[in-house]
Write a protein that binds this DNA or RNA. Structure first.
Lengths: 155, 155
DNA sequence: CCATTCCCTAGTAAATCACTTGGTAATTAG
DNA sequence: CTAATTACCAAGTGATTTACTAGGGAATGG
């Protein structure tokens, strides 16, 4: 299980693409400018995203990137897995010698948690994120209680 | 937002402590043995956990570590924050010059997602994890469908 | 006293991060 | 056709992080 800043860059870039790619492709130069990410680093991230067919590149003037499928079909887990090589840890059914000991139980607990986190992220799509934010702007228009709660707990 | 293998080590160690610390303190040597983590690395992790009062050390022979509070009062987010320095990213209300542009919207979306992930992890306690697993063993005793699903999606 | 345990500092090889440099390949506008 | 534009590709780099080793204390129990 891995969720680094690299994943954040990828999600951020994909969000930018989902937001600005409604009519015509978006160039990496634009995303680089918008999000403050170096062009060449974006190229590396997009190479990984392209391998997983989450984006589609078009070369030449007027070219750029499209989403590889609809924003609703791309989950946050998909994006993070593409660039961050999600490692599902030590289901130690064989490899390790932890036959029923405390080690194996702990590993099982961790694996369950890891799966839960994955499923959580797999159930949020790019489209969800965009829509949720627009709805929130309409509905609330004032407070940001969720974020405030998280901050206070984190501190 | 950060969720590295270091956090995994910390959660694993805390799980071990929750499982084995029912009667008397648990030594880092035991956890090191159980979980296959180097003793000195554990010491560093537990220094961070101690700072956040998630564990309590007792020196001398027969000593070891206790949980700093009950397993139900310790969330996974607490543990990860302790060792991984959870960085809440770029709520760019001031620092950056993204006045209403695509950058700021994307950052807002990311911040919302980040908060959601945090809240998700904040709502799972060590106690939950242990109980959930014990219940599952009683209830199902056969299939591990959740984990299987996650694996197939990850691949 | 002395063994045990926590506690602390420093250093390190390997990996990862975010980036730079310097290209090549395809496509379009003129 | 040419030149500009864009995606694509590879190699390398300083900074940071990871997981660990080494080498010590400081407190406590027998």
């Amino acid at each position: 299980m891995r969720l680094s800043t690299k994943g954040r860059y990828a999600v951020t870039a994909m969000l930018d693409l989902a937001l600005n790619g409604k009519n015509g492709p978006v160039t990496l130069a634009e995303i680089s400018e918008n999000q403050g990410i170096s062009l060449s680093y974006l190229e590396q991230l997009f190479a990984a995203l392209r391998n997983k067919e989450l984006v589609r590149g078009v070369r030449g003037p007027g070219g750029g990137y499209y989403l590889g499928k609809s924003a609703d079909e791309i989950s946050i887990a998909n994006i993070i897995c593409a660039v961050d090589e999600w490692v599902e840890f030590t289901r130690c059914g064989g490899r390790q010698n932890c036959s029923g000991g405390a080690r194996c139980l702990t590993h099982t607990l961790w694996d369950d948690l890891s799966s839960e986190i994955f499923n959580f992220l797999a159930n949020i799509s790019l489209g969800d994120l965009v829509r949720r934010n627009l709805n929130k702007k309409e509905d609330e228009e004032s407070s940001l209680s969720v974020v405030a709660d998280a901050d206070s707990q984190a501190a």
